[in-house]
Amino acid sequence: MFTIFIVEDDPNISRLLQAHLQRYGYAAVVAADFDRVLEQFQQLRPELVLLDVSLPKFDGYYWCRQIRLLSHCPILFISAREGKMDQVMALENGADDYITKPFHYEVVVAKIGSHLRRSYGDYSGKRGERTVEVAGLTLYPERLEAALDGNRTELGHKEALLLETLMQRAGRVVSRERLLEKLWDDQRFVDDNTLNVYVTRVRRKLRELNIEEALETVRGQGYLLRVVWRAPS
């Protein structure tokens, strides 16, 4: 049974979320102390976090950053803030998705199921470890890690999925539509800037491996991952 940690200070919303998730077979736990969210997370060790932006004392962005220091579990923001910058900030701080209020509980459950399948589904440790390799760069999708020449970097779930899709078609342009389809089940709820955020994050991860200018934007078409890396001089 998957455990969902609900960090929402509106008691009506948290109660309804908890009841709805329990109805679908999840173990849903509501945060009891908004000053000690990280401690509760460490004790609970959930598979997924539902996190509001507006919280007492520290906001959701802060707690998202703290959780990311310990875990790569999916984090889904739920917020009444509808601005594009709020969604971009959530992704920049480590979130995997952003759901605006008011929302249909069925949509929340569907998104939770989607993220759990991608994070803990058929390929997570059941058939031996998968790897994807291109020109010495090795991606470990289940480990959420990439390595090159003895250097390693950790990835978020979406970052790993994006890099895997690009590596599988290295040297060829991958359309934005294909990437959106790979990363999100329902593209209607994904802002166009969202993919840009993840591309920027993957470029940053590649630079940590001393790979510069490998992920190219092909205007009007999509993105291309070069097969031959250019290391910094």
Rank of each mutant, 00 (worst) to 15 (best):
T3P: 11
G113R: 09
V218L: 09
N151L: 09
M89V: 03
A170V: 08
L183M: 11
E154S: 04
R130W: 05
E154G: 11
A32L: 09
E142I: 01
S119C: 14
D122G: 01
N93H: 10
T200N: 12
F2M: 11
W184M: 08
L139W: 11
A95R: 15
V202Y: 01
E133D: 12
F34Q: 00
L183P: 13
F34E: 02
A231Q: 15
L144C: 00
V37I: 08
F189N: 14
L16E: 10
A231D: 14
P74L: 13
T131Y: 02
Q18M: 08
D97T: 05
Q187W: 07
V29E: 14
Q66F: 08
L38E: 08
L209T: 04
E154P: 00
Y62D: 09
L161W: 03
T153D: 10
V173L: 13
Y98Q: 02
V134H: 11
Q168E: 13
R169M: 03
E145Q: 13
R230F: 00
R15H: 11
Y61N: 06
D9L: 04
S14K: 07
S233A: 15
D191Y: 06
N210R: 15
C73P: 00
R172D: 12
R169V: 03
T200S: 13
E216Y: 06
K158N: 10
D33R: 01
S14L: 03
L206Q: 02
G222R: 04
S124I: 06
L55P: 13
E106Q: 08
E181I: 01
E133N: 02
E159T: 04
T153H: 08
E142N: 09
R23W: 03
V37G: 14
T131I: 06
V7T: 11
Y26I: 00
L69D: 14
G125V: 03
L51R: 08
I78H: 01
T165Y: 10
V37E: 14
L44C: 10
W184C: 02
Y62A: 01
L38H: 10
L44G: 09
S124M: 14
Q22E: 09
L155W: 04
D149P: 09
R118D: 07
A146E: 12
L69S: 10
A28K: 06
W184V: 05
E212M: 07
C73K: 02
V30Q: 00
I78Q: 05
Q87G: 08
K205N: 05
L166R: 15
F77I: 03
R143H: 03
L44T: 13
